[in-house]
Write a protein that binds this DNA or RNA. Structure first.
Lengths: 249, 249
DNA sequence: TTTTTCGTTCTGGTAAGACCAGTAGGATGA
DNA sequence: TCATCCTACTGGTCTTACCAGAACGAAAAA
């Protein structure tokens, strides 16, 4: 194994694996500076461009920060590269958009549960602000979409979970466009305005009530109704979707 | 903006942005080969090492495949790099492990719902095989952990969602170790054997019954009970956790 | 004509050396 | 003691060069 690591593996692999080990075994901790590129290259017996490839790799993974003329520093992991990934991945497989949407629902449903347990006053305030803006911007597709987005983001932030937040952000940025086009359905369905306002309000209320089960059910129905609107828009059916369980709220 | 892209941005940024654009606007499609490194370097006015840094970056993001002496090919996006990311990220912030676990629960709960709608016979068979193995390996921490892992993975696979599958895999690989240590609690709690066997069976039954709501509730309770076992192990309390809603199944 | 073989050409992988431009920190001078 | 300057060091980048294997077409053999 060691022999293979040292011999058969490519230079890049060796350097990357070396740094990975150092990061995993705690030799390199957050905030610390790595060896200089030249030093690293000499120590591992590779050329500097190879070392730079490995450092770039760690950089796009959000593990290190490369500061010009200063050095390479281990930073607090940042998953913003997920955004790049999802964006590029979706460009290749556009059909994944519904799939990603489902993953987003997964994240939000878990988030709303945690939010019920952990939300602070500040979180409630953020949610309420978003709620008010949704009402104010109901006739504006762009601003309305942004307000909608903010509300859902506020839910995830209220969950106080960095992982959920990062996953959600990387996906919702990507879904923003489709979200916006959905907002344009407001013109088609008169009932959609009240859906947008009242339904978000219902979700908000369940969080304030700190009722995880009801919060998730309400949020899930919120997504389902939105889907139904979209379906009707595609098939050209009339107004008022109201999934069969609308009496529950 | 263009001027800035061309002037102020570093060479790496330029190349990366250029390739990103090409991927987003569909100029580069899956399976296609990129320009040769030399050609790319000449066209963008940078040196080959810089181009290689950008290509490596796309490679670690799982967007392209670099085939030695053949070329760089746009491949089907592969999120396996998430595994690297989560692994390295967790090494820096070990306290994130509970946070990641919550995200995993989010994924599985959504997956089990979708599985109820979409699971095929093959999925049922895979689930059942895992179930049987859980019973067979109940006294073996290693094999038992693997069986447990397989069962949960089977749920996600049954959801037929690539995104959920990829997210789940990247997290569960990482959680495998903590999962395993949890399995060693089997020795401490006599009731845990039946928990492991019966509880998984209950989840399986709800999927077969294609009842999303009950499936999610059951799975959520499954996680809660596991957590409770772990809590008791830490605090040194006795046997039989049985969260207050155990009669529901 | 078909098949095999060979070799040129192109590709990525890597090394080595060099220059630039800021940074950091010690040495120097006020 | 403090402000200033200088120098070593760092990352950013380019250039040149060589290797080895893959691809592909031409030439030779069947």
């Amino acid at each position: 194994m060691d022999a293979q690591d040292a011999d058969s593996a490519s230079g890049f692999e060796r350097v990357f694996a070396y740094l990975q080990e150092r990061l995993l075994d705690g030799t390199l901790k957050q905030g610390e500076r790595l060896m200089a590129e030249r030093e690293l290259a000499a120590q591992l017996g590779v050329s500097r461009p190879i070392v730079r490839e490995a450092l770039r790799a760690l950089h796009v993974l959000g593990i290190v920060e490369i500061r010009e003329r200063v050095g390479t520093i281990v930073k607090r992991p940042d998953a913003s590269m997920l955004k790049d990934f999802f964006t590029l991945a979706l460009a290749q497989q556009a059909d994944l958009i519904d799939d990603v949407m489902e993953a987003r629902i997964a994240i939000e449903c878990q988030a709303v549960r945690l939010a019920c347990e952990r939300a602070t006053i500040a979180d409630f305030e953020r949610l309420q602000r978003a709620l008010i803006r949704i009402g104010e911007t109901i006739d504006d597709a762009d601003a309305g979409g942004a307000a909608d987005f903010d509300f859902h983001r506020a839910i995830v932030l209220a969950s106080r979970s960095p992982t959920l937040a990062v996953l959600h952000e990387s996906m919702s940025t990507l879904l923003a466009r489709s979200h916006r086009s959905r907002r344009e359905l407001v013109q088609q369905f008169s009932s959609m305005k009240s859906y947008l306002i009242d339904d978000h309000k219902r979700v908000f209320d369940t969080i304030v009530a700190r009722d995880p089960d009801r919060a998730e059910v309400t949020l899930r129905r919120h997504f389902a109704i939105g889907d139904e609107y979209r379906r009707r828009a595609v098939t050209g059916e009339g107004d008022r979707p109201e999934t069969r369980s609308a009496q529950g709220a």
